[in-house]
Amino acid sequence: MKSHIVRLAASKLLPFTLLLSVIVFYRGHNEPGGGFIGGLMAAAGFVFYALAFDTQEAEKKLRVSPLTLIIAGLSTAFISTLPALFSGNPFFTGEWISVTLPFIGKIKAGTPLLFDLGVYLTVWGVMLTIIFNLMEE
């Protein structure tokens, strides 16, 4: 697609899409949202970018390959199961800590969040792999 409007929109919208996806991902804890939807949104931003330019350009913008995202996601999800082991709880038990950050305030972080982050990254990577492959052909 060689429309300047679309290209401009795609490049300007990309950071906002990513920001929105992170918000939706974090919101997913107690409200509608979550890693899956967040990952889809993040992928959608890059798919739009790839539609406006092309897939090489989008992959360059992504900096890492979609495969790296998948690996990172799977590893994160796997690592999220480990803390429960060391504290002697059954496998997959959610372990929580609350952290106080400057400006943001108290946030709760725990293994379910980490697992969800794994889902986010995996979905993002898988979607981009499939769609980029289809677009390139």
Binding site: F36, M127, I130, N133, L134, E137
Partner: peptide, 20 residues
């Protein structure tokens, strides 16, 4: 739905390759 979504993506890719 999530599983169905993955399967749809796969089925569409399969359809495309099939047609090609």
């Amino acid at each position: 739905i999530v599983i169905g979504f993955g399967i749809t993506a796969f089925a569409l890719a399969l359809m495309y390759r099939f047609y090609k």
